[in-house]
Write a protein that binds this DNA or RNA. Structure first.
Lengths: 192, 192
DNA sequence: CATCTACTTAGACGCATATCTATTTAATTG
DNA sequence: CAATTAAATAGATATGCGTCTAAGTAGATG
């Protein structure tokens, strides 16, 4: 489906998003028409029809055949179907590909961090989750820490180490056993 | 497919014909998002996202679920598919239904007739065809006319009865045998 | 060759709309 | 209850685009 990237799809929608052009599609779906004829049927001037047909031509949605002086236009149904299919195919996949997916997390981090220190603890779960993901990176994997060490590390970011330590355990980013803490692999974390 | 008349289809295209909204569809196709999140991902302000989501809501293309303070939006895939299907279904059928199909012929007649007289004979076949369809109605069906009568009737519309009489026969709107003419049923006419 | 006809191109005008800022509403937290 | 946060709404601005008129082009006619 190389011919139907997001930009093509966007142009397709823009072409179809006009009442006059929709009617032209309806008419050309039934029979081929000249510019003059379309103009009369839609109560528009010839240059206006020409303008619309040019947009269809750009996307290969119509085919033109000169017949003497007049230009006979017909609809390219296969192309219409092709573009139409790509709506459903492309929307889940390609549409968001030029959106960098970390923009959201980056923005949250930037708004709560200042010189690697937490300015405050986010109230909403969604944001706390992002902050905790950042915080847990301060701990090495496969290393055990006594509670005192945990508190010291957390306090480099924020004074309320008790709350944050509890959250880390709650989201299963760290585990505690016998007063000893260690970082869990990301697969164990529980966002919710 | 009652929910997808031409106006709905038009609104669908207008909603999709915008780069930001296309990206929103792409994002919501993957997971549900809050307004704030979408704004961050697309580098837009929250009100702008709200504005776009309202357009989706009008067409029932998204569903919203409040979660505390935040509003979580998700894509209504079935609705997207439904609207998308109606493109191909509706385009040949319903699109042109509020276009009166005689506008073209009416316009041609008006431009060549003045008080039921032909101001001139159209050069192009297409238009001559329309004029001749009008002219042949001056003759009763199932009646025979000698050439002299044919000429007289035609001359009420235009002096060049010879040319017009020849055309009527050429397009098989009338037949001549032994100097006698009569009108043929419409099924016999040959437009070309 | 001159004229006419159908179409296209160029340029102008006005409406629709995407985005922003500022304000309001609703839900949450302390 | 006061303060905070997320969304929605209102209003302003600027860009895009649909339509028109006028001018240019190419084929057909006489």
């Amino acid at each position: 489906m190389e011919a139907s990237d997001i930009q093509t799809l966007l142009r397709f929608f823009k072409v179809m998003a006009n009442e006059s052009r929709l009617k032209v599609v309806g008419l050309l779906a039934q029979r081929e028409c000249s510019v003059e004829e379309l103009a009369a049927l839609l109560n528009l001037k010839e240059p206006t029809i020409s303008h619309h047909l040019a947009k269809f031509r750009e996307l290969d949605l119509v085919q033109m055949q000169p017949k003497g002086n007049t230009h006979l236009y017909r609809l390219n149904m296969e192309r219409l179907n092709e573009l139409n299919k790509s709506v459903v195919v492309a929307s889940p996949i390609a549409l968001a590909e030029d959106v960098e997916p970390e923009a959201w997390e980056t923005k949250v981090l930037k708004s709560y961090l200042e010189n690697d220190r937490l300015t405050k603890i986010p109230a909403s779960r969604k944001k706390r989750w992002i902050i905790l993901k950042w915080l847990v990176k301060q701990f090495e994997p496969n290393v055990t820490y006594p509670e005192k060490a945990v508190n010291e590390i957390i306090q480099q970011a924020h004074p309320d180490s008790a709350t944050l330590r509890r959250e880390l355990v709650g989201y299963q980013m760290m585990r505690r056993e016998n007063g000893i803490y260690w970082r869990l692999p990301e697969s164990e974390w529980k966002p919710v």
